[in-house]
């Protein structure tokens, strides 16, 4: 409760929250406002925004409604962002906590694997995965998660390395507590705050990765996506600037909102900034 109250005193956190609510509202209302397939042809191509009341944000080069794609694209981005982040956090926390708690050869092995992932730029790795496994939405979320867990693992491991030395962990061992219980019930809750803050960065990055894939035409072709709209707008950028600009702004706002929230949580969890 205290943390929530402190979060609400951080300007970054509040701005982020407002922006995120905006994106959430877009995603939630997409079905009612634009019940038709956003990728179906709707009218004359390349209409400017705020001219035709049927297409508030205009149409793209194939005559699809930009606004409908924006709203449905918000769904895609949030879905990918949240599920990819979950995958990254689960994998990262598992690897990091086991590595940090046990140390020794377990740590060495897991950390070499982590490094193997880190040496390949994660977007390249993602491209390889997409080429091999295809680009269905559910797979995509999993694959994005799979290329972004390494930093989470390192962060969790660092926390565990210090926490496992603490006397309360030794006290649990003296009581005869099993390792798994010590790791997940005793240490993990103490190690989570920095990981939660970092999750916002992972989420922002996942949204960017999906947009980048869609921009290259490698995302799920059956789903509306901001990245796809930007790619489409790129070809007509000099004649119809608005097609690429609108989804570009949307990506900016979504990523900004999540990282501002991360900043807010960080401030709220940082006891030095607390004043009471």
């Amino acid at each position: 409760m205290r943390t929530v109250r402190f979060f609400l005193t951080s300007p970054a956190g509040i701005i982020g929250l407002v922006l995120l609510v905006l994106v959430l509202a877009m995603a939630a209302s997409a079905g009612t406002l634009y019940p038709n397939d956003p990728l179906s042809l709707a009218g004359r191509p390349l209409q400017a925004p705020f001219v035709n009341p049927r297409f508030v944000l205009g149409t793209d080069s194939s005559g699809r409604d930009v606004a409908a794609q924006m709203f449905h694209g918000a769904r895609t981005s949030l879905l990918i962002g949240i599920s990819a982040t979950l995958v990254a956090i689960v994998v990262g926390v598992l690897v990091g906590s086991i590595s940090g708690y046990y140390g020794g050869w377990v740590d060495v092995t897991l950390m070499r694997i982590t490094e193997a992932f880190q040496t390949v730029p994660n977007f390249i790795l993602l491209l390889v995965l997409v080429v091999i496994f295809g680009a269905r939405m559910d797979l995509l979320a999993f694959m994005i998660g799979l290329v972004s867990w390494t930093a989470v693992a390192r962060l969790t491991r660092a926390e565990f390395l210090t926490l496992r030395q603490r006397e309360f962990v030794q006290a649990c061992r003296v009581l005869g507590m099993g390792d798994l219980r010590i790791i997940f019930r005793e240490i993990l809750p103490n190690a989570l705050p920095p990981v939660i803050v970092y999750a916002s960065i992972v989420m922002a990055f996942s949204i960017l990765l999906e947009s980048a894939l869609a921009f290259l035409g490698l995302s799920d072709p059956n789903v509306a996506s901001w990245g796809k709209l930007i790619a489409d707008g790129r070809r007509v950028l000099r004649t119809a600037w608005y097609v690429a600009t609108m989804p570009g702004l949307a990506v900016l706002i979504a990523v900004l909102s999540v990282s501002l929230i991360g900043q807010g949580i960080n401030d709220a969890l940082n006891p030095r900034l607390r004043r009471d």
Partner: peptide
């Protein structure tokens, strides 16, 4: 243990 601040899970 020695340190009563570290030996209890906060």
């Amino acid at each position: 243990f020695q340190d009563p601040y570290a030996s209890l899970n906060p």
